[in-house]
């Protein structure tokens, strides 16, 4: 299924900014969350094209607003004796968690919107940021 969706995007020249695949409550059904950009008519066309895939059950365009989006990021920071405290303080401000500690590194877990994660990247870079792994965004619509 993923290859059909990804293939559609590449064949028709649509961007994929991020993509996230997971199970749903029904184990036979999986959910793909994608972030893409385009004018309204492009997005409308993408939705119609996705519906054309035989296995697609439902497509929801969350639009620019009207939804809550989060992503999870894992950071690896090289720690020096004089920067440890500073890293910890920043992580706390961002309501992140330190999930692994070695004598010279921290692994940090943070969830949030894209801006928050970008902000954290900028703050940690001068302090010895070595690596970031991001899930890409997932979303739910607001309300029922």
């Amino acid at each position: 299924m993923l290859s059909r969706v990804a293939g559609l995007f590449s064949a028709r020249g649509y961007n994929i900014d991020s993509l996230c695949v997971a199970e749903t409550l029904d184990p036979k059904v999986s959910q793909i969350t994608m972030v893409t950009e385009g004018e309204d008519d492009t997005v409308e066309q993408i939705v119609k094209q996705l519906y054309k895939l035989i296995d697609v059950i439902r497509v929801t365009d969350h639009g620019p607003d009207n939804h809550v989006a989060r992503e999870l990021a894992l950071f690896k920071v090289r720690t020096l004796p004089d920067s440890r405290a500073e890293v910890m303080r920043i992580v706390e401000i961002f309501r992140g968690k330190i999930v692994d500690v070695t004598p010279d590194s921290y692994a940090i877990e943070v969830t949030g919107g894209a801006e928050k994660i970008q902000g954290l990247i900028e703050l940690l870079t001068p302090l010895g940021l070595e690596d970031v792994t991001r899930t890409g965004r997932i979303a739910v619509a607001r309300g029922l």
Binding site: D41, E44, Q45, K48, Q49, Y51, K52
Partner: peptide, 8 residues
């Protein structure tokens, strides 16, 4: 019959 043909 194909909605994707419309306004493509």
């Amino acid at each position: 019959i194909d909605p994707t043909s419309i306004r493509k």
